[in-house]
Amino acid sequence: MNLFEWLRKALVVWRGILSLLLCVVFSGVLLSQDRTGRIVFHEVMVGTLLYPLQATLSHFDGSLRIYHENERLRRENMAFRTENDFLKQSLRQSPRLVEMERFHATVSMRLKAGEIVAEDAGRLQRAWVLDLGRADSVDVNMPVMTSRGIVGKIAKCFQKYSLVQLLSDPEFKASVQVDRSRARGILESHGTSRLEVQFPAGSDVQPGDTLVTAGMGGVFPKGLRVGIALQDVSGMEEQNSDVIRVFQVEPFQSLDAVEEVFVLIKQDQWKLEMAP
């Protein structure tokens, strides 16, 4: 038996032991390396065999990190956007609130500030829902106004909220007078945004006159600002044109842009007194 034959048989029979010895010796060689040898081994392995694996791992780990970062940024973006919307809303609301506060401070009447929480869903803007009710000392027929002028009156009142009948409601009527000449008339609406005031023929009314409440009827106290008389449209009305003068009115407070209002908490014996 020659040497090669003996080695072949030994490998077949003793391959387990030989493999074990080989691995143990190899491990021993690695363990016996000094620091320089270990670093060389590390660099060779990392630089050649493990580089593709490492690159794959880094790519996977990076993708996962980017995914989580993207999720976090998306949440932050949503929070910032909401905050931005809120701040914009506050910025728009601020001048109105300042104006309301100034009005509240200069008027000696007892005013209750409220917010409009709903509008009439119909085609005509006839009513609002106000977040003030009997619990806030609000009652039926109390005037509703802004710092610019009246907008309506309380039509129905519940414990926590109430319905405001607006100037634009065709059912709404109010007694008004010309601030300059004290000529009295009746304010009404024709179901559109256009308001009209009917004066008796011969009344001293001119376009541009300021109209205020006349204090007749017991709902609105005297002197609340209503609007400005525009053109005389009596000629357009064929009936009663000889006994009635009709003026279009532009209200001081447009009903389209109101969010907060005041309710005038009327006393039984009220009297309008403006603060100095």
Partner: peptide, 25 residues
């Protein structure tokens, strides 16, 4: 098992320079 352990250990040893060969063994 021997060779699989050897390969696994070597890969682990690459990242543990101070104990090079210990994982392989």
């Amino acid at each position: 098992g021997l060779y699989a352990g050897m390969i696994l250990g070597l890969v682990q040893d690459v990242y543990a320079v101070e104990t090079l060969g210990a994982n392989a063994l």
